[in-house]
Design a protein around this nucleic acid. Structure first.
Lengths: 408, 408
DNA sequence: GGCATTTGAAAGAGAGGAACACAAATCCCG
DNA sequence: CGGGATTTGTGTTCCTCTCTTTCAAATGCC
C-alpha cells in the first residue's frame, strides 16, 4: 500500500494550503491576495494568515497594489521574493555543460553554459568543471538561501541517489554521479538528479508549451531520443526513475544496431545520426550538420527533403504507439525534433493518422517546444524546488507557541 | 492547473481519513481497531470517532475480538457489512457476458456468466440480455444498498460517458453504451464504463497478482490485445480514458493489416489469431483451438512450440518498449497471455533481455495473472466502488448538529 | 494478582469559515 | 470639479470542525 494513504491531521491541511499558495505564485508570478482567494477557494482570513507566515519567513513580499482601473479597494500584490529561496540547476548535456542560479518563481538569476566536445568524458572531468562553474555563479552576493540542487543529465538515472545507469553520450555505466557531485560541491542541501528529457518535460509543463497539461508527452531529440511523460498531471518516473526511455522502443525488427545493444530502436530511425545519414551528411556531424540539412531543405533539395520525410514517417510510426498507450492531449517536440518540426509535421501526421486509433489521435496536438536548449536546466531547477513547493512549512520559522515558551 | 490543487479545509481531513479506513478494510478485509490505528497513523480516539460514524451508517460492524493469545485488552474487530453497500458489475467480453453483485470488501454475492457467440452484435441485443441477467441477480432479497454500476467492455471507451469509440469484437463504432445501459437498467445510480483490460489491471492491482503495486503493466491477451497500466499507483486513463491500447502499438513495418485499419500492430503478432495461424490452426477457432495448440505443445509438437516461441519473441519485442517507457516493477500477463505464459516465458525473456535497457529490465518481474476470466468483472466492481472509497462521507448520515436542531 | 494493551471520555490545540465593521478605490451625477 | 454611491477587499473576532493529549477504567494473558 502506498504510504500516502496515511491518516491526515489539521497540520496536513495547513501544509497543503501553504503548498497551494506557493505553487500558484511559482507558476503564475505575482498575484493579488484576492486572486489567491479565487484560485485556492480559501477564505480571505485563511489566505491572510498563510501569507503572513510566508512574509515572516521572507519567502514572499506584499506590496500595495498598483491602481488597475477596477472599482473597489485594491488588493495587495503578493510576490515571491526572488532571493527568498534559490536553487542551483546543473545540466550535463550532449555538447554543453550549464549551471544556473534560479530563484523561486523561476527567475534565472545567473547562468553559464560552456560548450563541450562530443564524446566520452570521465565523471571527474565533468564534475570538476561543473564545480568551477558553480563557484563562479555562487560568487555573486547573497547566495545564502540555497535550498537545493537539481541536475539534468543525458542518461538513464536512478532518482533515489543519482546513479547513472547508462549514458552512452558520455561513455558512462553505473556512475554514482550523485556521490561525486555531493563531494565536489560540498553540498549542504539535497541534490536531485534526473534524466534530461524528463526534466525538459517538467520545464515545458511548468513554463513552456505544456503549461497546466495533465497528459503530455515530451519528446527530446538529440543524438539519442529521450522522452518525458506527464501522466495525470504527474511526471512518470517508474519504479526507479528509469521511465520515459522512448528512444529505445523497438520499432524496426530489421533495424540497425543501437548504442544500447539492441537493434531497431526508435532512435536509430529518428535520431540525429539517422537524419544525417539519410540526408547524405556525416552522421557524427552534430548540430552544424543538422543546420546544413535544414538549409538544404529550405532550398528544396530533394535528398534533404526525402530524409526529413523519412524521419517524419518514423516519428509518426513510433508516436502512434505512444499516443495509443497514453492518450495524451499534447505532444511537445523538443531539441532536434522541435527544430525539424516544420519539415516533418506533415509526414508525421500522415503516419499518425494511419496508425494511431482514431479516438486517441483526434484528441492529440503536436507542437514544438518553447524553451529551447535551457529546458532541461529549467526542469532541474523545478526539480530542486519541488520539496519547497510541496511542503513549504518546513521552510517557515517555527511558530511562536508553547514550544518556544517551554524552551525559554 | 488541476483543480485538486485547491484549498483544503478541516472537512477534507475527515474525508481523507474516512477514505483511508474504508480503503484499508476494503483491501485487507476485517481489521482490529488497533490495526487500523497502526495502518493509518491516526490516534485511537480519531479511529474510534470515525468508525462510530460508519457503524451508525451500517457500513461497518464491530464485533468483540476473538481472543488471540496476545496479552492486553482485545481490540474489537471492525468489518465492512457485506450488504452495507453493493455494486453491480457487468462484463461485455469477447465471448461471454457476465453480471455480478459485489459487496463492499470485494465479496461476490452473486454472479451469472453466459457464453456469447463470437461476432458482431447490436448494442440492443447485448444490453437487453444484460438487463435480463441483472433482473435475475437483483431478484435476490436485500439488494437495496446498490451504490453504483461498473461495466467492463472489450473496446475503446470514453470514461466520462461510456461512449464506445470502437469495439472490433462487437462491431461497434461510436456506440453510446452508457446511455443504452442507463435506459435499460433504469439506473438510479451512477454507471461507470471502462475498457476490459484497464479493469482487469485494476482487479489484479486490488485483489490479484499486483496487490499494492505502484508501477504495473497488465497485458490482456484475447482476440485483441489490451493493456491496463498502473502508473505511480494510479490507473493511467489518458485524457479521455482511451489510454492503455497497447495492442495497437506498431511493431512491424512489414506486418499484416490489423482490424484497426493500421498494419503491423502488436496484436497482429501476438494475438490469438496470430498464434493459431502460426500453429497451423484455424485462426478464428477461438478458445478451444488455443487449447488444442497448448495440448500439442505439451506433447512436444514442433509446429506448436515454434508458434509459441515466435509469439513469445514478439511479446518480448513489444514488451521491451513498454518496459523502457514505464520502468514497471511488475508485468502481469492476463487472458491468453496468462494461459500461454509457461510456454512463452523463455523466448519472451530472451527477447526482453536483448532489447530492453538493463536498468529497467533488471527490476521487472513477469508473472501470470491470478484472477482469470473474472478479472474485468471484478475490476468493474472496483470501479463502481471508487466513489465510495474515495469519499465515504457522502454515504454517511448527516451528523446531528445545529442543522438538525434548526430544522426541528 | 500483576502486567500489557486497549478502550472511553473530556479537555486542548490547530486550522479554516462566517460575519461585521471599515477602508480605499472607481463611478456617476449634480 | 467635487462629493456621495457603489464596489471590492481588508482586519478582526468568534465559531466550528477535527485530530491529539491525557488519564482513568476495562480486559485478558501469564
Amino acid at each position: 500500500m502506498r504510504l500516502h494513504a496515511i491518516g491526515q491531521r489539521s497540520e496536513t491541511v495547513r501544509r497543503a494550503n501553504l503548498s497551494a499558495i506557493v505553487r500558484e505564485l511559482h507558476a503564475n508570478g505575482p498575484l493579488s491576495r484576492s486572486q489567491l482567494v479565487a484560485k485556492t477557494g480559501l477564505t480571505r482570513s485563511a489566505i491572510r494568515g498563510l501569507i503572513g507566515e510566508f512574509v515572516a519567513a521572507d519567502l514572499v513580499s506584499e506590496e500595495r497594489a498598483a491602481p488597475l482601473g477596477a472599482p473597489g479597494r485594491p488588493s495587495p500584490v503578493v510576490r515571491l521574493s526572488p532571493g527568498g529561496a534559490v536553487v542551483l540547476a546543473l545540466d550535463i548535456a550532449v555538447d554543453s555543460l550549464a549551471v544556473a542560479l534560479v530563484g523561486l518563481g523561476g527567475e534565472i538569476l545567473d547562468i553559464i553554459r560552456v560548450q563541450r566536445p562530443r564524446g566520452h568524458s570521465t565523471v571527474d572531468e565533468i564534475v570538476s568543471q561543473l564545480a568551477e562553474m558553480t563557484e563562479l555563479i555562487c560568487a555573486r552576493p547573497g547566495g545564502d538561501a540555497l535550498i537545493g540542487i537539481g541536475v539534468a543529465v543525458v542518461g538513464v538515472v536512478r532518482r533515489s541517489d543519482g546513479l547513472v545507469s547508462t549514458a552512452p553520450n558520455l561513455g558512462w555505466r553505473d556512475v554514482p554521479l550523485g556521490d561525486h557531485l555531493a563531494r565536489a560541491l560540498k553540498a549542504e542541501v539535497p541534490i536531485a538528479i534526473a534524466n534530461e528529457a524528463d526534466l525538459g518535460a517538467l520545464a515545458e509543463l511548468r513554463r513552456g508549451a505544456a503549461i497546466g497539461g495533465d497528459d503530455v508527452l515530451y519528446l527530446s531529440g538529440e543524438v539519442g531520443v529521450g522522452g518525458g511523460l506527464i501522466v495525470g498531471g504527474r511526471p512518470l518516473t517508474g519504479v526507479a526513475g528509469y521511465g520515459g526511455e522512448v528512444g529505445h522502443i523497438p520499432v524496426n525488427p530489421d533495424g540497425i544496431v543501437c548504442r544500447c545493444g539492441s537493434a531497431g530502436c526508435w532512435e536509430t530511425e529518428v535520431g540525429e545520426e539517422a537524419l544525417l545519414r539519410l540526408a547524405g551528411h556525416q552522421p557524427r556531424g552534430g548540430w552544424s550538420e543538422v543546420e546544413a540539412v535544414l538549409g538544404e531543405a529550405r532550398e528544396g533539395a530533394p535528398v534533404a527533403l526525402a530524409a526529413l520525410d523519412a524521419v517524419g514517417r518514423w516519428l509518426g510510426f513510433g508516436l502512434a504507439g505512444l499516443v495509443n498507450v497514453f492518450n495524451p492531449r499534447l505532444v511537445v517536440m523538443g531539441g532536434l525534433f522541435g527544430r525539424i518540426h516544420p519539415y516533418v509535421a506533415d509526414s508525421l501526421q500522415r503516419e499518425l493518422d494511419r496508425r494511431a486509433l482514431p479516438a486517441s489521435r483526434m484528441l492529440v496536438r503536436i507542437v514544438p517546444a518553447m524553451l529551447g536548449v535551457d529546458a532541461p536546466l529549467l526542469g532541474a531547477a523545478e526539480l530542486a524546488f519541488e520539496p519547497l513547493l510541496s511542503d513549504p512549512a518546513a521552510w517557515l520559522r517555527p511558530r511562536s507557541g508553547l514550544a518556544e515558551l517551554a524552551s525559554a
